[in-house]
Simulated assay, not measured.
Amino acid sequence: MTLRQLTILPADRVVLLPDASPLTEVEYETDQRLIPFGCRSGSCGACVVEVLQGGPALGEPDDDELDFLDDLGLSGGAHRLACQCRLRGDVTVRVVDQI
């Protein structure tokens, strides 16, 4: 099994997840709430992260995710809804303060 590394800032924590795992799996790998997941369906914005390194390893955002991020004023490609991402490589993200 291939493990991928997810670095989460500002907590400065590294979580190892199996290849293609949804980022929601972070909750089961640590006793801390490193990413604040809410609805898990991409409609609440609780889990917005800024992708600092490795963005392509999270897969391409779909149109609904892009539209929602645009509604939040976060267009431009640096932000993602963590609940909509799968880890396919090493990635570093920064959790965005509540919107």
Rank of each mutant, 00 (worst) to 15 (best):
S43W: 13
S75D: 12
P61H: 02
L74D: 07
R88T: 10
I99C: 06
D90T: 15
P10H: 02
T30Y: 09
L6V: 06
S21D: 12
D97K: 11
V95T: 04
L34I: 05
E25I: 01
L72S: 12
A20N: 13
E29V: 15
Q32Y: 10
L74K: 14
R13T: 14
L34T: 07
I99Y: 13
S75N: 12
D71W: 00
L3K: 05
L6F: 02
S41D: 12
A57S: 14
V49C: 07
P18A: 12
L23R: 05
T30W: 09
Q98K: 14
G89E: 03
G45H: 01
L81W: 06
L16I: 02
G55R: 09
G38H: 06
T2Y: 01
T92A: 11
L17A: 05
L72A: 13
T92R: 13
P10N: 00
S41P: 01
S75E: 13
A82Q: 11
T2W: 00
L52S: 03
D70T: 12
L81G: 03
V14A: 11
C83W: 04
S41V: 12
D71K: 01
G55L: 07
F68W: 09
L87I: 10
G89W: 04
C44M: 04
Q32A: 14
M1T: 03
L74G: 06
R88N: 11
Q53K: 11
F68I: 06
C39R: 02
D90Q: 15
A82F: 10
E25Q: 07
G42H: 06
H79N: 13
D70R: 14
D63Y: 00
L3Y: 01
V95N: 05
I8Q: 07
R88M: 11
D31G: 14
V51F: 02
G38R: 04
P10I: 02
S43I: 12
L52K: 10
L6R: 04
E29F: 15
L23V: 02
